[in-house]
Amino acid sequence: MEREQLKEAIARLAPGLEFPENAQLTEVLAPTAGFRDLCKALRSDAALQFDYLISMTAVDYPDHIVLVYHLHSSALGHTLVLKQKLTDREKAEADTVSDLWLTAEYQEREVFDLFGVHFNGHQDMRRIFLEDHWVGHPLRKDYVDEINIIER
């Protein structure tokens, strides 16, 4: 599906979607509210069928965290970058999509571990790589570890 068609098809699904220009792939910035419903629609819509979550990660900016979902349709072969912006860095929360794409269960755990984003509705919200008593979330830009991180 061409990029413009894809944008049209997605824009039909939910209001308030932004389509940033000059992106490498088709990109959608979705509002936090109703994000799960949008995901559900993206997955089940016959013209879209985004059934494969390639990767799910987060990017930490000084004043907000962006969750990035790379979606792919195994049947139709188009790719989409779905984003949502979490403005509250201190108590970052998002809705889980782990029941829609099963791999998200572990990718969300990773984001929780390294970025400190809590996913509501996730059944097993534990740290995945680090020990349970670890303090801080290492991939945040303001994370300090004077022993292990050597600045040069």
């Binding site: 990767s55 990660t57 990017v59 930490d60 791999t103 572990y106």
Partner: peptide, 15 residues
């Protein structure tokens, strides 16, 4: 890079 993420195959394959 400001942020680099590797979506590694084994991560999904293992779980």
């Amino acid at each position: 890079p400001y942020r680099i993420h590797f979506r590694t195959p084994n991560f999904s394959n293992m779980f």
